[in-house]
């Protein structure tokens, strides 16, 4: 164990060193940050093509659910930015509405916490949430692993990807985590603009300026999220129900400073990812902009940038929408 640790430390050191060199050569171009070449992954689950491919098969396989009817892809659909077009999904095995909106899966390899409240500390651990939640895929892990080990197909797949004869839930989570890390959106007009291959129209350019002035503090480029947690003025009450799910980030950190905060969602592919917010309460971007303009609810944790709301006149709204349109990535949405 300790000897392995030394090896890991050495490997890490070299990686950091090489990484540092590459970084300085690369001139830190924003566009290159979001790339298949530098997907962050934990040391015990380094990116590997065979594992990604196995993860993709698992992602679309409904036999992972309790009654073999629901796959990950039911609530994470490519054309909706790997999210869903309903506020609260009823596609789980119980068909009871979930308590939060199915989040998009866009460039989440770079996130710092997962789920709307960051309760999952890494993607591998996250996987067990939707897999086992009684209103999502509802599977019993022991039973699932028995079935996977009884499947000649999956036995072979896991053997070639991981070199193992017996499959454990950890391997399942690792393969799925690898696949979702490859769900990368970096082919929008905005990305082309960064590479100098696209010129913003006048409206888009004006919208970009408005965006940088009003939105960029949370929806930071190039991910269009800071992967942080903020109270954007949706509510000013909460309860202890369902393990305090509507306390937001506060139910995870268990400090009052984080009450009603949720992870900033990305604006990439925004027109494909309606409805909006952690509970899908807004159906359109206009409703979202109305909220920021005049519906902010005050609470001690409200983000300081939103105390006076965000006011845009009709033409500014038009420019903003024009800019947001440049964040659409049709190849990611598999619309081509």
């Amino acid at each position: 164990m300790e000897r392995n640790l030394c090896k890991i430390v050495l490997t890490l050191s070299i990686t950091v060193f090489v990484g540092a060199c590459l970084f300085s050569c690369e001139e830190n171009r924003q566009a290159s940050v979001i790339s298949y070449d530098n997907i962050p992954a934990p040391d015990h689950n380094k990116m590997d093509l065979l594992k990604v491919e196995l993860g993709r098969k698992l992602f679309f396989d409904p036999s992972l659910s309790k009654d073999s009817t629901v796959s990950c892809a039911h609530c994470h659909q490519a054309n909706y930015g790997f999210g869903e077009n309903v506020s609260l999904s009823t596609q789980g095995v119980s068909h009871k509405p979930l308590l939060r909106n199915s989040p998009t899966i866009i460039n989440i390899a770079w996130a710092k916490g997962w789920f709307w409240d960051g309760g999952a500390k890494n993607i591998e651990s996250l996987i067990f949430g939707p897999l086992t939640h009684e209103d999502e895929m509802g599977v019993d892990l022991k039973l699932l692993m028995r079935n996977i080990n009884a499947s000649a197909y999956y036995k072979k797949e896991f053997k070639s990807a991981f070199g193992i004869d017996k499959v454990y839930s950890a391997h399942l989570a690792r393969a799925l985590a690898q696949y979702v890390r490859t769900l990368i959106s970096n082919q929008s007009k905005y990305d082309l603009y960064l590479e100098g291959r696209y010129q913003f129209s006048e409206k888009e350019a004006l919208g970009y300026q408005l965006f940088q002035k009003n939105c960029n503090s949370c929806h930071q480029e190039p991910f269009f999220t800071d992967f942080g947690y903020h109270n954007n003025g949706l509510d000013n009450t909460f309860s202890d129900d369902h393990e305090g799910i509507n306390k937001g980030r506060g139910r995870i950190t268990r400090v009052d400073e984080d009450l009603l905060k949720y992870k900033t969602p990305t604006l990439r592919n925004i027109f494909a990812t309606a409805p909006y917010m952690h509970d899908g309460r807004f159906n359109s971007i206009n409703e979202v902009l109305n909220h920021y303009e005049k519906e902010i609810k005050h609470f001690p944790t409200l983000d300081s940038t939103l105390i006076n709301g965000i006011q845009l006149d009709a033409s500014e709204r038009e420019y903003m929408l024009a800019f947001l349109e440049t964040l659409m990535d049709s190849s990611f949405l598999e619309l081509n």
């Binding site: 689950n45 897999l131 939640h133 892990l141 950890a170 985590a177």
Partner: peptide, 19 residues
Amino acid sequence: TDQVGDLDPANGMAWNWDT
């Protein structure tokens, strides 16, 4: 929580919403 042995989440001792 992607671990094997006694820490395997299949043992029912891992939280799935708060790692």
